[in-house]
């Protein structure tokens, strides 16, 4: 089952993704067993009790109540999947972990906008500069950064998400216009980007993304929620780098931001 589903699923490159995938595998086992069980019973019954083979129906039919055991078993397995897997994962590794984040390494903001993803990097100081909707400008200031704020000097934006490997990333997901959904297939991350609300998400990449990837090898940010005309092309790149490469990249971006800042 696992290898069959993995044929279809994108690879997993996050620490919590394995839990998500395992739960998907377990549930598909349950589905398969139930479907095959019902299916065998169904097909045999259709064959065994057709009119020519069984001209007279039995008023009582099945007299035992073994089916109650089946129903009880299904309830029990679902309870195990819920209490043993889904709830603990959700609380420890996903929503709960994001709510109580204390020990993240990198903090970023993700802002959805028709039809691109803008990532707000706080720069070297690690402090997000002030932003305001009134300052948003699609060409020169997608984040609406307040350039007069000293903390904003080294902030920069990117339409792709670049992160270092093996570091705990905290992103605050939000939107400036309509509802989008921030989807990192290989990271098993999905979070609606809702205007007026900022939702924390944590994840840690376990691998670096392919270097010089062919189109089908790229790692991506997708938009999973209908957001208008260009919804289909609201795609961004996800790049996971070694720590050194990431720091070099950040340095370059900060330098560029500071140079642009001189010009204001």
């Amino acid at each position: 089952m696992k290898s069959f589903l993995q044929l279809w699923m994108p690879s997993n490159a996050s620490t919590h993704g394995g839990s998500v995938d395992n739960l998907i595998f377990y549930i598909h086992w349950l589905m398969l067993v139930l479907f095959v069980g019902w299916g065998i019973f169904f097909v045999y019954t259709l064959f065994r009790f057709n009119r020519t083979r069984n001209p007279k129906a039995d008023y009582h039919g099945v007299k035992n109540h073994y089916s109650s055991y089946l129903e009880f078993a299904v309830a029990l397995i679902e309870a195990v999947l819920l209490i043993g897997f889904s709830l603990p994962f959700w609380i420890q590794e996903i929503a709960g972990a994001a709510e109580e984040n204390t020990d993240h390494d990198i903090e970023l903001r993700v802002i959805g906008q028709q039809f691109q993803w803008n990532i707000h990097y706080p720069g070297k100081d690690g402090i997000f500069g002030k932003t305001s909707p009134n300052l948003v400008d699609g060409t020169s200031n997608v984040l609406g950064l307040d350039r007069s704020d000293p903390n904003a000097k080294d902030d920069f934006s990117s339409q792709g998400l670049s992160i270092p490997v093996n570091k705990k990333i905290l992103v605050h997901v939000s939107s400036y216009d309509v509802i989008h959904s921030f989807f990192l297939p290989v990271m098993r991350v999905k979070q609606d980007a809702i205007p007026g609300i900022s939702v924390p998400v944590v994840f840690t990449a376990t691998e670096t993304s392919p270097k010089d990837p062919k189109k089908s090898e790229k790692w991506e940010i997708g938009c999973a929620q209908l957001c208008g005309t260009g919804h289909y092309k609201m795609q961004g790149d996800l790049v996971v780098l070694e720590e050194d490469a990431y720091n070099t990249w950040v340095d370059e971006q900060v330098k560029q931001a500071l140079e642009e800042g001189e010009a204001w």
Binding site: M9, S19, V20, D21, L23, I24, I27, L81, L82, F85, S86, F89, W90, I94, A95, S181, F183, P185, R188, V189, K190, A224, Q225
Partner: peptide, 10 residues
């Protein structure tokens, strides 16, 4: 289940 729904939602 919300955990498995992460990958499959939408």
């Amino acid at each position: 289940l919300s955990t498995s729904d992460i990958h499959l939602h939408d």
